[in-house]
Amino acid sequence: MASQAGRLTVSILAVVLALTLNASAHHGTTFFSRDQADMVTVQGRVTRFDFRSPHSYLYVETTEASGETVTWRFESVPVPMMKRQGWTTDSLQYGDEVAVEAFPLIDKSERFAWLGKVIKADGTILNPGRTRAIPSWYVQ
């Protein structure tokens, strides 16, 4: 009986997968929230920018409402994709004042988020381009 139920479950899943399966290769990013209410805007100072693959990382130090100084880590796309959006290894320098829009972890276990865009003090917008981690409602 249990094995029949198991077979049925697998059969249903097979149908579901057959209907929806879309082959594409990437790291999963399902742990980032796509909820508009969760989006964060972090204003602070760049302390590190790793222009790397498979993901570039930006670190921004900010002071929270409580007065505590914290560092956010933002993840984004690999170097070839960043370059096609106009980014270079010098796009962000240590100490740059920035505002970062991003999509944080659903479980909020760390100050870690997927990068939406960076707005520099002079108004320049650095946009890493659209990926599946960017919610459809978000305007870059």
């Binding site: 999963g28 742990f31 790793d50």
Partner: peptide, 22 residues
């Protein structure tokens, strides 16, 4: 006309997000 870019995958960098999957 764009040149091919190097990927240069960084293993330490690549593994970091895995821990959030549970």
């Amino acid at each position: 006309e764009l040149p091919l870019e190097r990927y240069d995958c960084d293993p330490e960098d690549a593994r970091y997000p895995a821990k959030f999957h549970g």
